[in-house]
């Protein structure tokens, strides 16, 4: 009996090697009051290297989905696998570690620390992974180079344009070489020309083999993705 249970556990842990995100019957209820069900029985899978756009009107559950995939919140029921690891069974400490090493975030409002330079903001993503400041600096410079911001490495966020800020945020997201990058309206605060440049960078990242999940309202963004998932009233409808 116990052998069977152990085998199941092992099978649950090691799923398909190509799956980066997998959800099985995931639901989420905001406790409230009053309680509000934001997601209903979500089943989906994102394969390594995919570029997926998450679409849907406001309140459809997109952000809740992102929070769950990004391990920023726990589902009410169901299972979520990140890089084939059952994230719902992990304790907070391991989830933090998984988040740091496997997931990169790009937010609409950039979320750069105003008192740190572009380089230091990128280094921040490695603060909780490596103790070597020298190593962090080298990795951060490499990431900034990928987004074309080497020359602006020592500028403060207040000295950067909106597009440059978002590129710093992208550099921060990729510096740990994560399995998955989650972007929440990455071009929401940018004009169309700057947005196009940022999307070009995301395209390049996708072509390099990174898995991208982008939440967006923009058709321009969705068109660049290889696959779109549409949320409506907390349900995955496509």
């Amino acid at each position: 009996m116990s052998l069977i249970r152990r085998k199941q556990s092992r099978d649950d842990t090691f799923l398909q090697v190509n799956s980066v995100v997998k959800m099985e019957g995931v639901s989420y209820v905001y406790k409230g009051p009053p309680p509000l069900q934001a997601l209903y029985d979500i089943n989906m899978e994102i394969i390594r290297g995919e570029y997926v756009a998450i679409l849907g009107p406001s309140g459809s559950g997109k952000s809740t989905f992102l929070n769950l995939v990004g391990l920023l919140d726990r589902s009410t029921s169901g299972k979520i696998y990140i890089d084939n690891i059952d994230a719902e069974t992990l304790n907070e400490r391991t989830r933090s570690s998984l988040r740091a090493r496997k997931i990169g975030f790009v937010f609409q409002s950039f979320h750069l620390l105003s008192y740190k330079s572009a380089l230091e903001n990128v280094m921040l993503a490695q603060l909780y992974i490596t103790n070597s400041r020298k190593q962090r600096s080298a990795n951060a410079l490499e990431a900034l180079e990928k987004v074309g911001l080497t020359k602006r490495a020592y500028a403060l966020p207040s000295e950067l344009s909106g597009g440059e800020r978002q590129r710093v945020a992208i550099a921060r997201a990729i510096v740990n070489k994560p399995s998955l990058i989650l972007c929440d309206e990455p071009t929401g605060n940018l004009d169309s020309t700057t947005a196009a440049k940022v999307l070009d960078i995301l395209d390049e990242l996708s072509l390099s083999g990174l898995t991208l999940v982008v939440i967006t309202h923009s058709k321009q963004v969705a068109d660049r993705a290889k696959r779109s998932l549409l949320f409506s009233d907390g349900m995955l409808v496509r």
């Binding site: 052998l3 152990r6 085998k7 556990s9 092992r10 842990t13 090691f14 084939n84 690891i85 992990l90 400490r93 391991t94 933090s96 570690s97 998984l98 740091a100 090493r101 496997k102 603060l127 909780y128 992974i129 103790n131 400041r133």
Partner: peptide, 23 residues
């Protein structure tokens, strides 16, 4: 069983850390 446990242990990333100097 021990193999599964050790595989799982190897598979999970190291814990996040923060050195005193960085702090």
């Amino acid at each position: 069983m021990s193999s599964a446990r050790s595989n799982r242990k190897n598979y999970l990333p190291e814990n996040s850390r923060l050195s005193v100097i960085d702090l």
